[in-house]
Design a protein around this nucleic acid. Sequence first.
DNA 1: CCAACTACTGTGCACGTTCACAGCGCGGTT
DNA 2: AACCGCGCTGTGAACGTGCACAGTAGTTGG
Lengths: 338, 338
Amino acid sequence: MTGNRAPRNRPTIHDVAAAAGVSRGTVSRALNGGRNVSPAALEAVLKAVRTTGYVANPAARSLVTQRAHSVAFVLTEPQQRLFEDPNFSILLQGCTQELAEVDVPLLLMTANTEVERKRTSRFIAAGHVDGVLLVSSHTGNPLLEELRDSGIPVVACGKPIGHEGQVAYAAADDRSGARLMVEHLRSRGRHRIATITGPPDTPGGVERLAGYRDVLGADASPDLIAHGDYSRAGGEAAMASLLSRAPDLDAVFVASDLMAAGALNVLHDSGRRVPEDVAVGGFDDSSIATSTRPALTTVRQPFQRITREMVRLLLDQIQGEPPAASILPTELVVRAST
Amino acid sequence: MTGNRAPRNRPTIHDVAAAAGVSRGTVSRALNGGRNVSPAALEAVLKAVRTTGYVANPAARSLVTQRAHSVAFVLTEPQQRLFEDPNFSILLQGCTQELAEVDVPLLLMTANTEVERKRTSRFIAAGHVDGVLLVSSHTGNPLLEELRDSGIPVVACGKPIGHEGQVAYAAADDRSGARLMVEHLRSRGRHRIATITGPPDTPGGVERLAGYRDVLGADASPDLIAHGDYSRAGGEAAMASLLSRAPDLDAVFVASDLMAAGALNVLHDSGRRVPEDVAVGGFDDSSIATSTRPALTTVRQPFQRITREMVRLLLDQIQGEPPAASILPTELVVRAST
DNA sequence: CCAACTACTGTGCACGTTCACAGCGCGGTT
DNA sequence: AACCGCGCTGTGAACGTGCACAGTAGTTGG
């Protein structure tokens, strides 16, 4: 990244000051809030900005304000999931939009491998960004602790198991969402309700299973519980396992839409009709839910509110406020699969 | 983004120099290449860096080098497509990885609406980034011209219609890829081969249709051609239209896997078997191709090579080299749908 | 033995901005 | 008339780094 730089000399604040017939200080004041600037000077500055085409140099500004004016979006998931599961794209897109509103760019970084984690960690410690949006479902990733130690504001997406109260987060109310779905399945007259969970080291894996157990109580036999990894293939494998262990099941609550799509395929291959023989409920209400056949009954995660809260919580922390948490309500969306 | 900043005073190059017993200049040299630095000094500096925990301040560096040391990834597609079509995630992920190799962070920006475009344009003109990776399929977006005028290095993904030769780009060889597929369908004994194209203002829309026509010649009757918009719903609508106009078709070449997935659903609903009654070929070889039933025969785009070339072309331009283009070969991947 | 060269080192300046401070004129109060 | 406060303005310093330059010591060659 070194080499001959293009010799396009951009106008500086000096040029604007000269063109407007005022000093640098006045230009700076006029542009940042306009406090204590006479109307005449303000107008002259704005005009000079227009004629010179001046845009403030972000590096110089950062240097003096000690602010990067940017934020990192760090993804610690295996990259396969990034483009298989639409959830990540939605989160990423949402955060980008939300940050754009306040003119803060988003830097995308990954931390899947050891090398990447080191690089990302060092990069963030260098002060390139003012805060971190951390999308990492599974616990036990040392990155979170590294970030916390470095003192940089962090907001996690989903409850950071083992760090509640220490690090800010925004999350859907997984547990009550799961309850909604299982109660719905019951109301459809199902009695052998199985579940495909997320990984047990993720908040979604734990909480959605807890919600399932809340409703079923003693009916939640081990035969009816299979663990998935949030991937489509994982959903297929878990469904196959359930069918072999409990061939008489008449409903499945799957902890993500993507896994549910996999489960649908396996049910189809086994000759079972959905929802006549087996009702299937998903979780997320991602774009997948409406593209399966039959369309998926699912629990809607309020992604837009989640991203909005994540950004808000992060900006608040950057302003110096202590970390907080936002738990957002979920909603049952009934379609053809139940 | 203003407010009380955390008072964690990071060590500067002065602190390192003091700790190592040398001057700032020597520290700077030791860290940037290590040219003309005595072994003793080098070691002392490295040790001092370790003990002080020094990391260079990126803003200060950018200010003096006139380099942002970062790159923007700009997406001008309607946002719906970002999380419906895995292609974008793959491109994004690939570019992030490739740039991480050379320690260049990626800023994600969107330019769907007029407001966003203005914001992004202004942001880039401010010098926040050294170059732009532009993912915009449809032509006629003024952003490309704005960027070109501002003199910043740009690499487009896919041939930028109307700007060939002026702006660098990396693209798959769409036309010959389409030929491969249509020839394959013919070799399967199909004679009424329809196609669902991409939008006519995109290179993929134009080139893949051209490849289709190359092979079919006079057999490419208007009845057999429907236009899609690269969305799943668009694929469904186009397939429905084709079935009503040419009920006797025995094959469809669809210009993207996502649209092909939509087409499969419609064919299924119409009672046709794939591939017995109708063979279906896709384009992209995205993750969708293996998740449909039946799995999709498709044309593989070498996404990894595309992203690698995009990054290389961009870095080259930043170094001062003129814009160039990379056309990469495609490959037929035969699965169950043909 | 001196000059020239090499290898290394330290110092001042510049990058472009914001901020604190001091200065100015003006109107109103004591 | 002297003072004060207020609104506005200009100026110097600082942010932390890289780079050009000058300088030093040690080595080599004539």
